[in-house]
Amino acid sequence: MKLFQLNTILALVVFSFSGTGVLGQETVPEKERGLWVARQIDQEDQGFVNQVSEATMTLRNKQGQESTRRMTIKSLEVDGDGDKSLTIFSSPRDVKGTAFLSFTHALEPDDQWLFLPALKRVKRISSNNKSGPFMGSEFAYEDISSQEVEKYSYEYIREEAVLGSEGHVIERVPVDPKSGYTKQVVWVDGANWRIGKIEFYDRKGEKLKTLTFNDYKQYPNKKWRSNRMEMTNHQSGKSTQLIWSDIKFEQDLTERDFDQNALKRAR
């Protein structure tokens, strides 16, 4: 990731001048405090190397009817660029074997390919449709794609307790005009830099959705992951629960497990 090097340089510079050794909160000018929080979240997540997990989405409509989607998601941290990810669907059964490969970039459009098992066809698709629903759920593509710091501009709102510790509330505005949101309000815990809640505001500026991050668990590599996310759409009354299981880090995965050949082999 680009930001890693930037932060390292920044930290070194601050270190040599302040002599405190830590980029302390006190040294951050008020104007840049929102960005500083975003960087802490990003930096906290650096070094996960790769991650493999099972995800189950339960879609619930206004009448309470449910449907399920199951997928395996593999992601790979890339030096100097956004993450790569491979999503393989196993349910609903008619889309079983469909696989989605995405190379995230901070400011350039993401590169995305879809594998259609019936035709054994790999299709390059446009990553422009960020605001569209992911598999009919309340998650938009932009909600589940890799969150690069450069994708937003930030503003600090207030201090507030989040996930049981002192925390921060920041506002972030998507840089991409194709985003479905005018802004997002993000609650972050100041101890471990975990996101507790995000509120999404639509293009009309009205509150659209709330995403809460529950059941955080710390893994052997010290990374925190929420194992249950709840997205509620306030306008449609629909909601989607996203349960993560079997989260594994630092698996034997390379860039070759995230190319178009891997897409064809995906099961």
Partner: peptide, 11 residues
């Protein structure tokens, strides 16, 4: 050419 998300997620 795709008009993405024209109404309630419809493409």
């Amino acid at each position: 050419y795709t008009f993405a998300n024209v109404h309630r997620g419809m493409d």
